[in-house]
Design a protein around this nucleic acid. Structure first.
Lengths: 232, 232
DNA sequence: TGGATATTAGAGTATATACTCTAGCTTTGA
DNA sequence: TCAAAGCTAGAGTATATACTCTAATATCCA
């Protein structure tokens, strides 16, 4: 593999694992057993590495969120979208973490990310529209649908952060893609009231599969807090 | 005012304005025209300052979220909760920004924040319960209500971040408490389907007041993105 | 083959950041 | 009144971080 690609991959891994803020260019170089000079031969600076990673993330999500325009959408479609998006979220999970700082320090990224958000919101909106056409959910006025889409976006993009903060010991090892996908439970919760009656039971059953499990460790969370946090 | 209190206030201001990551202890001292030594006489380190600020934030929100146990809740109560919580969010808006890093680097804060999250979720849940008793919203099974509460928490705590990332030019000056409160629109959107019929119209009217306005600048967002982002 | 080009090592630098240390000043209260 | 305690200034330090520079090596291709 080319050094340039190795740098991107290693950076992504390290960012995901330790957070962008805790990973320096020297760390990345050391991790790959290459010199800092070598790294800076391939990338002008750290922001450029992050930007490259973002482009890949963007490409992946755009790919996942393609919507067929020749047919309405089914429940299976919807679940596939959810699964895919959470997969993407997991692979690039560092990104939504220090997002604001990243955007603050790279104008190009800020602009692109804004477009990305716009496209995602539009896709979510289209998916709802397609589901309504497919008779899975009720049709809603445009205004309500786009506000709903935005809520879905907020829940999806911030579920990871919630998990990390809600779990006591900062062991990020604990956080698995499996736990991340419990976010699907939350998204389905959002959609429940809009389902057509004949789909309600099916979705409730699906939803149950993503229901958050109690972390198996007895330690860490005091019983009072556990009660308050419910399943988390 | 005591130097110690001045440090807390100045730190909060600077954190809110520039982000915790961009504010050093030396900046804080310089801003107050005191020496670094003086600052470190009052606080062992930067984390301690942040922790103090958190305690105030926690106290404020806990105060806002007190719930009367001698009567059911009204629509006015609900709006008051929303207004209050968004006020608090605004005053300590730096906090939910670099949250994960803050929690990573201060175990005490991590533990306390977890408890805080738990109490907030419990309060939201209680509010829904009280509203159901007051006949404002339909009563829902416990499981659904707590999942709903969590969605509300996610939307509330991340609305600010969304605004910052969705707005093109990083001019944080633009972001006002007024814009922040448009988050109330999103929360009301979540609640709409659960309202008792006789409250539906009233809430729709209220909601309209918080409806996001187009940013008045013609520049920055390309028309394509504007279309996609809808009202944002 | 051999010169040009691409890649790499590794020492080094400018700057920033969190924090320390000492000495001096101010306030308090017996 | 005066010593103890509290407060403050400001120079200074150890460490980290993003990034540079030069020289050497590998690769390519005419």
């Amino acid at each position: 593999m080319k050094t340039r690609d190795k740098i991107i991959l290693a950076s992504l891994d390290l960012f995901n694992e330790r957070g962008e803020r805790n990973v320096t260019t020297n760390h990345i170089a050391a991790h790959l057993a290459i010199s800092p000079g070598n790294l800076y031969y391939h990338f002008r600076n750290k922001s450029d590495i992050i930007y490259e990673i973002f482009l890949e993330y963007e490409k992946l999500v755009d790919y996942y969120l393609q919507i067929p325009d020749d047919r309405p959408l089914t429940l299976d479609d919807m679940m596939f979208y959810l699964e895919s998006v959470f997969d993407g979220l997991w692979s690039y999970r560092f990104f939504h973490r220090d997002l604001e700082f990243l955007l603050d320090s790279d104008e190009r990224l800020r602009e692109d990310y804004r477009g990305f958000t716009g496209r995602c919101l539009e896709s979510i909106d289209c998916i709802f529209h397609g589901l309504a056409e497919g008779g899975v959910i009720e049709n809603q006025p445009e205004e309500l649908r786009s506000a709903m889409s935005l809520n879905v976006w907020l829940v999806v993009t911030n579920w990871m952060a919630f998990l990390k903060t809600a779990h006591g010991n900062g062991l990020s090892d604990e956080l698995s893609i499996h736990m991340l996908k419990q976010g699907i439970y939350q998204v389905l919760t959002l959609e429940l009231p809009y389902l057509m009656p004949e789909y309600r039971e099916a979705v409730m059953t699906l939803r149950e599969k993503y229901r958050p499990q109690l972390p198996e460790n007895g330690e860490g969370m005091r019983s009072a807090s556990r009660k308050k946090l419910g399943n988390f």
